[in-house]
């Protein structure tokens, strides 16, 4: 995105064995971290290993993770969408408005998804149609969308939602598995297949690595980027339905600051912020890690803002460590040779 310098790459003359690659991969590191946090949490608090508590804990990350999947694709393609939290606010406001006008649940869901799609389309048009840098465009639309929500609501709140609307954020599919958790699993599978098993996914990687080369090899760069912004809007709309249903109310300040948590989740999941690489399993693991850290700290009565220090440190460390490790190992390799 911003720093364009590319250092010379080390190109090996043969591939490492698949097993060695897997052991050294980012995802396996995340698995170790996740397991460690899980163990520490279960020793630190006797309440951690309760299925219902764990189920409650999943609400910490499911809504953010829904957006993170689409955001991962956007970031892999070399763009970014900072307006997602504002889309949640505007979508929630639109649904609250409709609920007050007497619409029932199916219509509310349709309005929610449509508003999300509409916001995504605006971002997509500005970025691909006018060729503007996405980081500035989405900072602008972030103010615009949340601002529209403020204009409609001011210091008021929508609180009258139909009873059946509560299912999306409070309902359970089976035993302790909430609707949100099920949606999270489905979305993870869908986005995993989309990114890793389809032409579309390959095109996303190609664009992120070299948009010009992708264009010359016949990929419709603009169209794919537009679709990615649409998807992000759609997922933000979905997250908004869940969040609004769970809270049962809409304020303009709903989901404030979520864009940063979503980006953190994506980057923690091993997606290169400059585009071109990353995977959905990584994002899933990052979501689990962030959810468990938040929940574990919550059980230990650590205030939310102290957790955010930890998340911030985690974000910098997970990016810094591989860089430091890479440098040291190169130095050692040089010393040996």
């Amino acid at each position: 995105m911003m720093s364009a310098e590319q250092t010379a790459r080390y190109v090996p003359d043969r591939l490492k064995s698949p097993a060695a690659r897997w052991v050294k991969s980012w995802e396996s590191l995340l698995i170790v971290v996740a397991l460690a946090i899980f163990l520490v949490n279960s020793f630190a608090s006797p309440y951690f290993l309760d299925p219902w508590n764990l189920s409650d804990a999943s609400f910490n990350f499911t809504e953010k993770a829904l957006i993170a999947f689409a955001m991962a694709l956007v970031i892999i393609s070399g763009e970014i969408d900072l307006s997602v939290a504002a889309i949640i606010a505007l979508t929630s406001t639109a649904m609250g408005y409709a609920a007050q006008a007497g619409f029932d649940t199916p219509m509310l869901v349709a309005i929610g998804l449509a508003t999300g799609l509409g916001c995504g389309a605006i971002n997509g048009l500005l970025v691909t149609g006018l060729g503007l840098p996405s980081i500035v465009v989405t900072i602008g639309t972030m103010s615009l969308f949340r601002g529209a929500s403020f204009i409609i609501l001011g210091d008021q709140a929508f609180t009258s939602y139909p009873a059946s609307f509560a299912y999306f954020g409070q309902g359970y599919v089976w035993w302790v598995f909430s609707f949100e958790l099920a949606l999270f699993v489905v979305a993870a599978i869908v986005y995993g297949l989309l990114l890793h098993k389809t032409n579309f996914g390959r095109a996303v990687y190609a664009i992120g690595n070299n948009a010009t080369a992708a264009l010359f090899s016949g990929i419709r760069v603009g169209r794919i980027k537009f679709i990615l912004f649409l998807l992000t809007g759609l997922m933000a709309g979905m997250a908004s339905i869940c969040l609004t249903s769970r809270l049962g109310s809409t304020r303009p300040s709903i989901a404030l600051g979520w864009e940063l948590e979503v980006v953190t989740m994506v980057v923690l999941g091993g997606v290169n912020i400059l585009g071109g690489s990353g995977s959905i399993p990584g994002v899933v693991l990052a979501a689990l890690i962030m959810g468990m850290v938040t929940f574990g700290f919550g059980l230990l009565n650590v205030p939310g803002i102290v957790m955010s220090i930890f998340i911030g440190l985690l974000l910098i460390l997970v990016i810094a460590l591989p860089i430091v490790y890479g440098r040291l190992s190169r130095r050692w390799a040089k010393g040996a040779a």
Partner: peptide
């Protein structure tokens, strides 16, 4: 460390 500026400052912000 050559960490992208947006990541660094997002982290230090929190």
């Amino acid at each position: 460390l050559d960490i992208p500026p947006i990541v660094v400052t997002l982290g230090t912000m929190t």
